[in-house]
Simulated scan of single mutants.
Amino acid sequence: MTTQATRPVLLITGAGGMVGRNLLDHPDIAGWQVLAPSSRDLDLCDKAATEAWIARHRPDAVIHAAGLVGGIQANLAQPVRFLTANTEMGLNLVQACRQAGVGTLINLASSCMYPRDLGDGLAEDLVLTGMLEPTNEGYALAKIVTMRLCQYAMREDPDLAYKTLIPCNLYGKWDKFDPARSHLIPAIIHKVHQAQVTGAPTVEIWGDGTARREFMYAGDLADAVMRALADPAALPDTLNIGPGHDHSINDYYAAVARVIGWQGSFVHDLDRPVGMKRKLLDVARQTDWGWAPATTLEQGIRATYDFYQEHHA
Rank of each mutant, 00 (worst) to 15 (best):
Met131Pro: 02
Met131Phe: 08
Glu133Ala: 07
Glu133Arg: 01
Pro134Tyr: 09
Pro134Lys: 01
Thr135Met: 15
Thr135Asp: 15
Thr135Gly: 13
Asn136Gln: 14
Asn136Thr: 11
Glu137Trp: 12
Glu137Arg: 05
Tyr139Leu: 05
Ala140Arg: 08
Ala140Met: 14
Leu141Pro: 09
Leu141Gln: 13
Leu141Ala: 13
Ala142Val: 13
Lys143Arg: 10
Val145Phe: 13
Arg148Lys: 11
Leu149Ile: 13
Cys150Met: 09
Cys150Asp: 01
Cys150Trp: 10
Gln151Cys: 03
Tyr152Gln: 15
Ala153Gln: 06
Ala153Trp: 03
Met154Glu: 14
Arg155Leu: 15
Glu156Tyr: 07
Asp157Ser: 10
Asp159Gly: 12
Leu160Ile: 05
Ala161Leu: 07
Lys163Trp: 13
Thr164Trp: 02
Thr164Glu: 04
Thr164Lys: 00
Ile166Tyr: 06
Pro167Gln: 04
Cys168Ile: 09
Asn169Trp: 07
Tyr171Ala: 09
Tyr171Thr: 09
Gly172Leu: 00
Asp175Trp: 13
Lys176Gln: 14
Lys176Cys: 11
Lys176Gly: 09
Phe177Trp: 13
Phe177His: 09
Asp178Glu: 05
Pro179Gly: 03
Arg181Met: 11
Ser182Lys: 12
Ser182Gly: 02
Ser182Phe: 06
Leu184His: 02
Leu184Val: 02
Ile185Val: 14
Pro186Trp: 13
Ala187Val: 10
Ile188Thr: 12
Ile188Ala: 07
Ile188Met: 10
Ile188Pro: 10
Ile189Trp: 02
Val192His: 05
Val192Cys: 02
Ala195Cys: 12
Gln196Phe: 10
Gln196Pro: 03
Val197Leu: 15
Val197Tyr: 09
Thr198Cys: 01
Thr198Asn: 04
Thr198Pro: 03
Gly199Trp: 07
Pro201Met: 04
Thr202Cys: 05
Thr202Phe: 06
Thr202Ser: 10
Val203Phe: 08
Glu204Met: 04
Ile205Asn: 10
Trp206Glu: 06
Trp206Tyr: 09
Thr210Leu: 09
Thr210Glu: 14
Glu214Cys: 12
Glu214Lys: 11
Phe215Trp: 15
Phe215Gln: 01
Met216Tyr: 00
Met216Gln: 06
Tyr217Ala: 00
Ala218Gly: 15
Asp220Gln: 10
Leu221Asn: 06
Leu221Gln: 04
Ala222Gly: 02
Ala222Glu: 00
Asp223Thr: 08
Ala228Phe: 07
Ala228Met: 01
Leu229Asp: 03
Ala230Lys: 07
Ala230Met: 02
Ala230Leu: 02
Ala230Asp: 04
Ala230Val: 00
Asp231Lys: 06
Pro232Ala: 01
Pro232Phe: 01
Ala233Phe: 00
Ala233Met: 10
Leu235Cys: 14
Leu235Glu: 08
Leu235Ala: 04
Pro236Met: 09
Thr238Tyr: 14
Thr238Cys: 15
Thr238Pro: 07
Thr238Asp: 14
Leu239Phe: 03
Leu239Lys: 05
Asn240Trp: 02
Asn240Arg: 03
Gly244Cys: 03
Gly244Ala: 05
His245Trp: 14
Ser248Met: 06
Ser248Leu: 07
Ile249Lys: 08
Tyr252Arg: 01
Tyr253Met: 13
Ala254Val: 07
Ala254Tyr: 00
Ala255Tyr: 11
Val256His: 10
Val256Thr: 12
Val256Lys: 02
Arg258Ala: 08
Arg258Trp: 01
Val259Cys: 12
Val259Ser: 08
Gly261Ile: 01
Gly261Asp: 05
Gly264Pro: 04
Gly264Thr: 00
